[in-house]
Amino acid sequence: MTAITVTQHVRYQTKVAHRRATSEPAWIRWTLIASALAFLTLFLFVPLAAVFTEALRKGWDTYLSALIDPDALSAIWLTLIAAAIALPLNLVFGVAAAWAIAKFEFRGKSVLITLIDLPFAVSPVVAGLIYVLIFGLQGWFGEWLIDNDMKVIFAIPGIVLATVFVTFPFVARELIPLMQAQGKDEEEAALVLGASGWQILWRVTLPNIKWGLLYGMILTNARAMGEFGAVSVVSGHIRGMTNTMPLHVEILYNEYQYAAAFAVASLLALLALVTLALKTFVEWQSAKNAAEFEKEANG
C-alpha cells in the first residue's frame, strides 16, 4: 500500500470515528449552529449591511458627490499619509524587536514583551492625551515648538504619532512567536557558510517570516486607517486640514448629513472587507507552507 492511501485512511478513520462515538445528536447540532448564526447576524452581518444601505439611501449621485467632496478627498489623503508613515516605522521596529527577542536570551525579556503589548491595553483616548501633554501648548515642548514655529498637536505630525502609537505592537506581536518557533538553526547554518548579518537577515530570516510579516502589515494598515479615538484627541478636527476619514465620518454624522457620513464610512467598510480577504488569503498561504514543510520533514 502506498503512503498516500495510508494517510487518507487515517484521516477518514478519525473523522468517521469522531462522528460515531463523540458527536451530538443532529437536533442539538443544528440548534447550536442556529444560535451562533443568530448571534453573528445581530452583531455582525446586520450592522455591516446597514453601512452600505444607508450610504446608498439617497442614490448613487449623493454617494459619489460625498466622496469627491474636497474635504472628503483631503481626509482620504491624510489617512493614506498617516498609514504610509506608521507602517514602515512599525515594520522596522517589529523585525528588530523580534530578532532580539527570538534569537537571543537576555534578562528582562518577558518584561520587554509585556511593554511592547502595552499600547494594546491603553485606551486610544489616553494615547492621544499623552502626546497632548508633551507637544501641546502647555506641554513639555509647547513653548519651544511655538518659538520655532512648529506644530505637532492639531496638525499632521500629531496624527502620525498617535497612529504610530496605536499600531505599535502589531508587526512585533506576529513575528515574535513565529521567529521563536522557527529557532535559529538556519541562521547559524548561514553564518557557518560565511554569510554576514545583513545577508542572513535578507536571505534567510525574511523569506522564512514573509507571511507573518505580511499578516502584521495588513493588521497595522487596517488599524492605522481606521483609528478614531487617539487621532480625534490630537487632530483638532480642522476640515480639509487635519481630518482623517474616520474623523470626517464623525463630523458629517454630527451635522446630520447621514448619507454622506455613511458614504465615507462605506469606503472604510470596504477597506475592512479587503483586509479580511487578504488576511484569510495570507493565513491560507502560510498554513499551506507549514503543511508542505511538515510533509518534507516527514519524508
Partner: peptide, 18 residues
C-alpha cells in the same frame, strides 16, 4: 503491519466506530 485494519477492528469491537 500498519494499515492492515487491526486498529479499526479493535475500535469496532469497542463501539468507537461502526
Amino acid at each position: 503491519p500498519s494499515g492492515c485494519g487491526k486498529t479499526t477492528l479493535l475500535r469496532i469491537i469497542a463501539g468507537l466506530e461502526s
